[in-house]
Structure formats: C-alpha cells, structure tokens
Design a protein around this nucleic acid. Sequence first.
DNA 1: ATTTGCTCAGCTC
DNA 2: GAGCTGAGCAAAT
Length: 119
Amino acid sequence: MIIIETRGKRVSIRKANTDDLREAAYMLLMLVPLGKTTTYKYLAEVLGVHPRVIARFMALNDNPIVVPCHRVIMSDGRLGGYSLGGPEFKEKLLRLEGVKIVRGRIPREQIIDFEDLLK
DNA sequence: ATTTGCTCAGCTC
DNA sequence: GAGCTGAGCAAAT
C-alpha cells in the first residue's frame, strides 16, 4: 500500500487489495486502548476509504477476540451497529471496559484521535 | 432531535 | 459489468 500525504490531507493511492486494507484497519484498531473508542470516520480518513467500507470490514471481522470491533462507533458518538449480538451487546462490552455512555452517546474524551495517537 | 439526501466500495447475480 | 446495499455522514429542518 502506498499513501501519499499532501498538506495534512491524505491522498491514498491504493494499489492495495481489500485484504491489505482490512488488515491495516484491524491493526489501527488494535492501537485503541481499553476504555477508549474510535470512529468509522477516523479510520476511514487514515486509510483513505469511505466510512462505510470500514463498517463493512468490521462486519466481516473473522476474529473478534483480537480485533475489538466494538470499539468503533459513529462520528457523532452514537454506537452504530454490531453484527454479533446487536448494538445491545456492543454497549454491554463497552460498559464492561469502562466506557461511559451518556444519553446514548459516548463523550468526546473517550473517543481517541488518531492524529494524537500516531504521534 | 429528526429528516433528508449523498455516498461509494463491496457484494450479488 | 450493472445494480443494490449499508455496523455512515452532514446539512438542513
């Protein structure tokens, strides 16, 4: 995979096949610490794909044990979907990890920013 | 807070 | 290759 970065805005020239992108997505996700979350949008921005593609990748996650796809939420703080047990289960998992959910939303502080993470 | 329209890669056939 | 779909987004209401 080749990623060219121009003035802060990322432009990716994707010679990568989808499997490569998938793996990249999973690896980034594994950088998200316990008790924090990230969003489909962030991941999409970093990888230079459409957010829905990230969602698709998560849905196809074949190894939920090592890939914490429940930590990926929507950009507005709402939970988004979860194919293994539904959104209720996703919420349960997050609560279990110490993520606080306020009125159906996850507060900003608990959503990591890849800009910072990758420094 | 809710509705509306846009999106685009993956999927299916 | 054409058409459909969606674990989303953003603007307008």
